[in-house]
Amino acid sequence: MRQVGSPALMWSLAGAVMAFLYLPIALVVLFSFNSGESLGLPFEGFSLRWYGEVLENRQILRAALNAFLVAIASTVVAVVFGLPTAIALDRYDFPGKSVFRRIVLLPIVLPGIITGVALLGFFVMMRIPLSLWTIILGLGTALICIVVTEVFARLQQVGRSQAEAARNLGANEIEIFFRVTLPAISSALIGAMLIAFSIALDELAITYLLTGRDNTLPMQLWSMLRRQVTPEINAIATLVVLVSLVLVTVGMVLSRGRGRRGP
């Protein structure tokens, strides 16, 4: 028997913390359907009014579209460089491996703003004008670590014997990658991509520093929040949360769920 402590007490403590985690988000979602002008109480009635206003706001739609494009492109960057990193870390020992690994994972611990400040200095010095492209470079770099951790964990779980078996059967490096490695990690990779995408969609710190003329959704939200808040924002927030929750849930189930039950 693994249980320690009174189940009733432990469960209610845990339940309270979980409620703490979900209630604030739930309130935002709830009030997005409030027909009244106020942001909080009283709840005047159910309506989709604010969603309608969001969908008519060209500025917001434009920013959302930009955010999607940026998120897609930075996810691509993260995969293109994260996948080989994970493979190299899994398969080979090389001098400086632990330093390299720490540099790769640094963005996980580092506040995003530092990555932003550093890259901003770099772009200024290189005379690269800020634009959506600079956001993509920054987010892509920061997101590589997500792909590396997810894919690396799966590679470790799969082990080397499949790749060795393929090599032993006569497969060359390219055949091993496409016929053995990629199928084995595909679900983890897709999961990592969805998670990276959802982070890119509403990352603020790097975006804030590297944004040029074109706004993306997090910047739009940020400036709306700094000015007087309108109930519209509840609707945008709900949509943003909804999108990221769906992406993350699917990503998690793909990257870890199947791997655990697998053969």
């Binding site: 082990g159 014997s161 060795e164 032993n168």
Partner: peptide, 19 residues
Amino acid sequence: APEERDMRMVFQDYALFPN
């Protein structure tokens, strides 16, 4: 290179390709 040797191995964990 291992892939160029005319030898085939039967692995302890079989190493069948699950997909």
